[in-house]
């Protein structure tokens, strides 16, 4: 799950980045509208967290531009402008949700989870495939009801796979989703984490599609 945060305030940006990375998201942080548009063009993000009061390019401009370019990713607007008119303008410009400042980290992550859930076409909070369930809110993974302990990256990978349980996940896409800018990426990292998940959740839980990537064996 790779997220893009657009926030010009250094302190807020640092705190949100630390918090969401701590929840296992890969997160890229840019500080102005122009950089945000460049990032959106180059990388596939699962969601966009957008501050409206941006230098260079107004946040709403960025949003309209991204929607015009056909970007369908869910967008959560973060802003201190919270009059009804502001919120309506934000939603009409293509935002999916609106979180006024000052917000709580817990609410921010809950709204991010909700956005991702909707984007994945689910209404329930649990991610599920076969006997495996993942609760994004608590970070708990269970196999046939019994809790399973996963490393942070294993958890992040499983969450990406469960987001679209029936789909084929190309290896490159998975790398993209797991690592933000400036994070060290080993050449065989995905294989390492897939191996770990197979060991903990069953050898045939993840199927390798040779030369392309992976998919989950079980239907949801």
């Amino acid at each position: 799950m790779r997220l893009l945060l657009v926030e010009d305030d250094a302190m807020i940006g640092r705190a949100v980045t630390a918090a969401l990375r701590g929840e296992g998201y890969a997160l890229d942080w840019v500080r102005d509208g122009a950089a945000a548009l460049t990032a959106l063009t180059c990388t596939g993000y699962a969601a966009l967290l957008l501050d409206l009061g941006l230098p260079r390019r107004d946040g709403l401009d960025v949003l309209r531009e991204a929607r015009r370019a056909g970007k369908t990713l869910p967008v959560l607007v973060l802003t201190a402008r919270d009059t009804v008119e502001d919120r309506v303008a934000g939603l009409d410009a293509g935002a999916d949700d609106y979180l006024p400042k000052p917000f709580h980290l817990d609410e921010l992550s809950a709204r991010v989870r909700a956005l991702l859930r909707r984007a994945g076409g689910r209404a329930g909070p649990l991610l599920r495939a076969g006997d495996v369930t993942l609760d994004p809110a608590s970070g708990e993974v269970r196999l046939r009801g019994a809790p399973v302990a996963l490393s942070a990256k294993e958890y992040a990978l499983l969450r990406v796979l469960l987001q679209k349980p029936g789909a084929l996940h190309p290896r490159e896409r998975l790398l993209d989703a797991l690592y933000g800018w400036g994070e060290e990426v080993g050449s065989n990292t995905i294989e390492v984490y897939v191996h770990g998940l197979r060991r903990k959740l069953g050898a045939d839980f993840i199927v390798t599609v040779r030369g392309i990537g992976y998919r989950l064996a079980a239907a949801p």
Binding site: A80, H104, L105
Partner: peptide
């Protein structure tokens, strides 16, 4: 008021981050 919200938002986030973080360094 708007300008005060920004540092106050940062404060709240930093405080909440502090309560979440367990590793000493962080």
């Amino acid at each position: 008021a708007h300008e005060l919200l920004t540092p106050l938002t940062a404060l709240r986030l930093q405080q909440e981050l502090l309560t979440r973080t367990v590793q000493t360094e962080q």
